[in-house]
Design a binder for these strands. Structure first.
Lengths: 138, 138
DNA sequence: CAGAATCCAACTGGATACTG
DNA sequence: CAGTATCCAGTTGGATTCTG
């Protein structure tokens, strides 16, 4: 599995990455890294995610075999999510990305500021930029 | 920079991850991993990407300081893209993800098949699923 | 509590045509 | 060759309301 070769298997890999690369996936998987969590617990921990999106993201993760969903039919109901072996496996490279993001956010923000200085006309054509720029302004 | 703590900096990290998690970002960065590439070269190597999307993704990466864009005003014009130090830095955790995806694609596909067996009514509510299922059927 | 169901605005990304 | 400029369909994701 050499890293710099393999021109053919780009697309299939892209599909998996796209799935993993969802805005919240990394956050959810890493939150589950230290044990099972209930739905509401996860929602609070991640923060800023709507239930609809959390629900469907968790469904995706369940579908891909990264998490298990355990329903306890009590009143009120209780649902726990937990990483599978595959999920814990994925957690390794994923948390590496997460830590990279935390560690290098300042560098990225600085690069964005620099870019805007050099290209004053650049202005946000993509939404993600706006969000990051707001952070850069802090 | 502990992995399992830090409830606060989830969102900011999410923004960076979202950026990185774009469908093509990982593919492009890893393709650039073994040296500078021209626009058309990249387009062929990645495969299946439109020039519009390739262009805007490259702009994003440039904006974030991951790649440099070098224009040689000849006829025909020539533009080279190359990883910056920050980009090469990012390449490390990113290619880990890429390799994970290649190595574990079968497991993910198997999980999807299993899921569909267990939940016959599940059927594609999200597009990404359709793509993966088509692959699963191969 | 955990979600399902709607409604709807915003963003993504593909196809096509044109330019220096 | 390497874009830029449109147009446009499909998806994502937020807010809100309702249910077992």
């Amino acid at each position: 599995m050499k890293p710099t070769d393999s021109h053919e298997d780009c697309r299939p890999v892209g599909e998996i990455l796209h799935q993993i690369g969802g805005k919240w996936t990394v956050l959810i998987i890493t939150r589950l890294g230290d044990g099972p969590k209930r739905f509401g617990e996860l929602k609070r921990m991640v923060g800023g995610i709507s239930q609809k999106v959390l629900t469907s993201t968790l469904r995706d993760l369940e579908m891909d075999g990264f998490v298990t969903r355990t329903v306890t039919p009590s009143i009120p109901p209780r649902v726990d999510y937990e990483l599978t072996d595959l999920g814990r496996d994925l957690l390794v490279p994923l948390s590496a990305i997460g830590e990279w993001a935390i560690a290098n956010r300042p560098r990225v923000l600085a690069a964005r500021r620099q870019y805007l200085e050099d290209h004053p006309e650049a202005m946000p054509k993509r939404a993600a930029h706006v969000a990051l720029m707001k952070q850069a302004a802090e």
